[in-house]
Structures are given as structure tokens and as C-alpha cells.
């Protein structure tokens, strides 16, 4: 299960971070909710974000009770569910999008469990590269975690500001692809400033892992993204992209472009 120790060089997430590191660049990870604002615009959005220079796309599998999400992602999930989005619907979306950048499915455990034991295989067949399950912390379900760890899908794990260093090590050793560091306490949502203790948390995390560290939760604009990528390997932007996508695909894409240039100028 210690898949972090195994270099799955075939994984596109690892390849992407290797390339970024070699060229001294930082990753822009964009989150979207599958099926939001609707199916056809969801497809356009994925393509648009890739073209805007995103390095990784996190595609949210909507859930009825997203306990770690703030109002923007909650509403987008409900919109997607109301329009009939399902786990297999997300896979179809990924398959049809044929993205050149790696794709991480992001969601809650119950829809994944309901998708059945073949879910991992179907994910891979559809072209997914990673999986992040918000309510599956390390040690919560060892059998399930080792089946994910043993697959070719990268298992992205979360680290929180409350996580003790010892546990950071445990988490990193049970994950692969990158580590997703939550920048602050709370649910997803937009925040005006970067938490002051972030630098120290990143340093603690780096002391126990060589996996790339991406920081998310609350990132709204290019300046924040630049500040974060000055200390981390990448930045994850969720609610701000989803909110913009609710207005138009174009505004989400132009936000991604400005994030991209903010990050690139800083590095």
C-alpha cells in the first residue's frame, strides 16, 4: 500500500511534475465539478482550462452531502446532480474530453463505493490518472486504501494544518502523485489572504516527503497563487473557478489564464 515508494513512472501525474521540476515551473491545478454548469459547458470548460495552461484537472464527482465544501461547490454539486450526473457520467465526460493533461477524480466516498469494485478499472479505462477522496483519511479503511494504492491510479491524500508532523509522514507514505495541503481550517471557499502559517506547514510537510506539494482551499486570484507557488510545487484553485464557470466558460478560462501568468511570473 505504500505506493508513494513505488515510482509509477507511467503515471501522467508523476510525468507532469517531473517536467515541471526540470523546467523550474509550478503547477496550476484547477478544480471543476463534473456536469456544472451543464454537461456541454462542462466539456468546453475542461478543454478551455487545458488550453489556458492548467497542469492537472481535478474533476469533482458530485455528492448530495458535501460536508467539506463551502456554498459555491455545494451549489455546483447540486446543479450537476439535478441534471443527472453520476459516477459513470463523470467517466464518460473524462473519456470524451481526451485531455492531454492528467485528471484526478475528486469526491466523497459513498458515490465511489456505490460505483462498485470495478470502479478503479473503469476510471483507468476512461483515462483518469488520480483519485482523491475527501472523507477517506489515511487509516480509515485499510483494505479499501490498499486496493486503491495497488492500482495504477495515483492516490492523492490530504494534509491539513492540524495534522501533526508524524501523521504527515504516514499520509505521504500512503499516497502518490502529489500531496494536497489544505491551506487553512475550514471548508472549500474563497478567501482574501494566504494563511500566515502556511510557510511553516509546507516546511513541516517537506521534511517528511519528497512528493510534490500542492496547496489549495481559498485561493481566489493570481497574487495568491503566486504567493503559494513561491513555497509549494503547485496551487489548487476550486471555488473561484467554479464560481466563474457559473457565469460563463470564458470567465473561468480567463481566470485560469491570469492564474497561470501570475504563477509563471513569480517563478
Amino acid at each position: 500500500m505504500a505506493s508513494g515508494l513505488v515510482t509509477t513512472s507511467s503515471n501522467r501525474i508523476d510525468e507532469r511534475f517531473t517536467t515541471l521540476r526540470a523546467t523550474g515551473r509550478k503547477a496550476l491545478v484547477c478544480y471543476v465539478t463534473a456536469g456544472h454548469p451543464d454537461l456541454s459547458r462542462s466539456r468546453e470548460l475542461l478543454q478551455g482550462l487545458e488550453d489556458a495552461g492548467a497542469d492537472v484537472l481535478e474533476i469533482g464527482v458530485p455528492f448530495s452531502d458535501p460536508m467539506a465544501d463551502g456554498p459555491v461547490i455545494q451549489a455546483s454539486s447540486q446543479t450537476a446532480l439535478d441534471a443527472g450526473m453520476t459516477f459513470d457520467g463523470v467517466l464518460d465526460l473524462v473519456e470524451q474530453a481526451r485531455l492531454k493533461i492528467p485528471v484526478v477524480l475528486f469526491g466523497y466516498l459513498n458515490p465511489f463505493l456505490a460505483a462498485g469494485p470495478s470502479a478503479l478499472g473503469r476510471m483507468q479505462a476512461a483515462g483518469c490518472d488520480g483519485l482523491l477522496i475527501t472523507d477517506l483519511p489515511v487509516g480509515a479503511d485499510p483494505a479499501l486504501e490498499s486496493s486503491i494504492g495497488a492500482s495504477d491510479i495515483a492516490f492523492i491524500r490530504l494534509v491539513a494544518p492540524t495534522t501533526p508532523t508524524e501523521r504527515m509522514q504516514l499520509i505521504a507514505s500512503h499516497g502518490s502523485g502529489f500531496v494536497y495541503l489544505i491551506s487553512r481550517l475550514g471548508v472549500t471557499g474563497m478567501q482574501s489572504a494566504v494563511a500566515p502559517e502556511l510557510g511553516a506547514t509546507v516546511a513541516r510537510l517537506r521534511s517528511v516527503t519528497t512528493l510534490p506539494v500542492c496547496v489549495g482551499f481559498g485561493v481566489t486570484n493570481a497574487a495568491q497563487a503566486a504567493a503559494i507557488t513561491s513555497i509549494a510545487d503547485g496551487v489548487v484553485v476550486g471555488s473561484a473557478i467554479v464560481k466563474a464557470a457559473g457565469e460563463s466558460v470564458d470567465s473561468a478560462v480567463s481566470l485560469a489564464k491570469s492564474l497561470r501568468s501570475g504563477i509563471d511570473q513569480a517563478t
Binding site: A68, P137, T162, T163, L170
Partner: peptide
């Protein structure tokens, strides 16, 4: 740090929560 027997009733129960809450639990 890994789950204890007291976390479960047979297969049921556990701690399926965001990482942020683990230290508090």
C-alpha cells in the same frame, strides 16, 4: 494512529472524515 478495534461495530462505524478533523477525534 491506525484504527482501533473500538472504532467499529463489526464492519460498521469508522472515521470517514476530512483529514482536518482527525487530530480532534
Amino acid at each position: 494512529m491506525l484504527p482501533k478495534a473500538t472504532d467499529r461495530f463489526g464492519e460498521f462505524g469508522g472515521r470517514y472524515v476530512p483529514e482536518t478533523l482527525i487530530p480532534a477525534l
